[in-house]
């Protein structure tokens, strides 16, 4: 399938894999674009095809992004995107899923049952982006304190800089 994609390079958006649009990125890795409802089905297909390891789960917030990385036609861009990286040891390839997650309903099915290692990574995405995972065994914050409010890696969450003072700060003692 990857060979077919390499033949048809330059015609992004016309190829599909696992029933969803597929493209090759600059590093010749397969990238699949999907909606939240398709995630579990695609992940099951990946396991049976030898993608035994889920390497990474990473959220991205595209609020106010100047330009987005290319998305094939037919995929509706949403505010959030969650990227999964899978690894197949037998054919030594990585594969990426880019899941579009809408702002109003930021929920994804958890992959814990298929890849138990995603437990901590999904907690991190929940903690930093506020995207919740259905069926996660321990949906709590992981990096921030439990009572923290807000999700720091969202683009509408300020960086929180300390203003620079150009005069000496009066001595408090």
């Amino acid at each position: 399938m990857i060979a077919e994609l390499e033949d048809s390079s330059g015609q992004a958006g016309e190829a599909t894999a696992y029933g969803v649009p597929a493209v090759l990125d600059a590093a010749r890795a397969l990238v699949l674009h999907l909606r939240p409802s398709e995630l579990t089905g695609v992940a099951k297909g990946l396991v049976s095809d030898g993608y035994l390891m889920c390497l990474d789960v990473c959220g991205v917030d595209y609020l106010a992004a100047a330009t987005r990385p290319e998305i094939p036609p037919g995929v509706k861009p949403e505010r959030f995107e969650v990227t999964y990286v899978f690894l197949s040891h037998s054919n030594r390839r990585r594969l990426r899923l880019r899941v579009q997650v809408p702002d109003g309903d930021a929920t994804l099915p958890s992959l814990f049952d298929l890849f138990p290692g995603t437990e901590a990574a999904e907690r991190e995405v929940y903690d930093l982006f506020g995207i919740s995972f259905d069926g996660h065994p321990d949906p709590t914050r992981i990096l921030m304190p439990e009572e923290w409010e807000g999700h720091p890696l969202r683009k509408d969450y300020g960086v929180g800089t300390v203003p620079v003072r150009f005069k000496a700060v009066p001595d408090v003692r």
């Binding site: 600059a26 590093a27 991205v60 330009t67 290319e70 990227t83 990585r94």
Partner: peptide, 8 residues
């Protein structure tokens, strides 16, 4: 240029 990539 716009794009996304994973390097390991």
């Amino acid at each position: 240029p716009p794009g996304e990539v994973y390097a390991a």
